[in-house]
Design a binder for these strands. Structure first.
Lengths: 194, 194
DNA sequence: ATGGACCTAACAAACGTTCAGTAGGTACAT
DNA sequence: ATGTACCTACTGAACGTTTGTTAGGTCCAT
């Protein structure tokens, strides 16, 4: 692993934990056991480093979903597979999830465009295509957004849900969450097309 | 409006925009047109100020939903009303929404408990009750979470969705979003009980 | 004359960034 | 083979600015 990759990998974890302004270059330097100037040798400034870290975090997620799309399953099975993969990725790589959350929270228009066009567009298009297949008469973007929103909220609210009445340990199991969401969606989409 | 309330109100907006470490005491002082020391006269330190601001932001939201619950509508109409109110609150008071998002992102266990027990518990319980009424055989917490997650994601992803294919201006209209979510949920819940 | 509300000015620490310099390697002309 | 030139990767020390916080004093209503 090169120094640059080491810096980026550590930056992902620490930016996800502390946020952009919460992480100082000195803290990062200490974490990768280098001098501050060494980091500035690889990256022109903090902002560029952050952007590259975000891009780096996203770079290996693309192929996780490839096998779902390329499988010979039915549309309904593909939906189940996609939801399950999405939840698995977010639960396993929480730094990725938190970094993504932070990016969306910041909502900088320029970065939103970069995020949408450069990173998520392909997956979102495929999901919209699937939505059209399942429910041709509904608005594909609305349906696709609902799918992602449903999956994401369970990961996001997990620390909060523990404290509500009605909480059960199985609510943290990816297969239970995925099954609930998939059923909810298929029930609805089927009802509409029938 | 007292100085203390003025500080808190401004702090909500700026903490929501910039995050805890992104907002300095000097910036806040300038925004409320006071000296830094004046803020320290009212609050012992930055952390306490932040906590009080969060609490202050949540204090007036409780009653927005009261009229939904107290209306004589059917369960299905109540669901529609709740979803519409939720989206309206989040779209109108974006600072409240962003501050809430930040709190959940931070996911400090102690603060999560405070948030759940002290602020959201009542609304969540009423929503679970409604879920049970609509779909008795389903897990109420899962359904309630799906309802909130669905509503929230549309507000959250708005800056991102603009950049995706298939976006239409009407996707930002609260009544369109609310209608889509309500229909999605009712379709599904009805299909199950039928 | 007492006390709450507020000020200016300063503190040490931490901040992002830069700069001059060095160790180690490669390439090339002599 | 050897000196020179140039490269990347890195260091230590410093730049000026901003940070959270506080001490000491002023104003004004009670």
């Amino acid at each position: 692993m090169s120094s640059k990759e080491k810096i980026l990998g550590t930056a992902i974890v620490l930016f996800a934990q502390k946020g952009y302004s919460g992480l100082s270059m000195r803290q990062l330097a200490q974490a990768v056991d280098m001098s501050v100037a060494a980091i500035y040798h690889h990256f022109p400034d903090k902002n560029t480093l952050y952007l590259e870290a975000v891009r780096f975090a996203f770079s290996d997620k693309e192929q996780v979903f490839a096998q779902v799309w390329e499988s010979g399953c039915s549309a309904e099975e593909k939906l189940g597979g996609f939801i399950r993969s999405l939840i698995d990725v977010m639960l396993q790589d929480r730094d990725f999830h938190r970094l993504m959350q932070r990016e969306i929270l910041e909502a900088d228009p320029e970065r939103m465009q970069l995020l949408a066009q450069g990173i998520f567009k392909r997956q979102f298009s495929l999901l919209m295509q699937l939505a059209t297949e399942l429910a041709p008469e509904q608005d594909a973007q609305l349906v696709a957004t609902s799918i992602i929103g449903l999956a994401k909220c369970y990961v996001e609210y997990q620390p909060l849900l523990k404290n509500f009445p009605g909480w059960k340990p199985k609510h943290e199991m990816p297969e239970v969450i995925a099954a609930h969401i998939t059923e909810l969606l298929l029930n609805s989409l089927r009802a509409k097309t029938a």
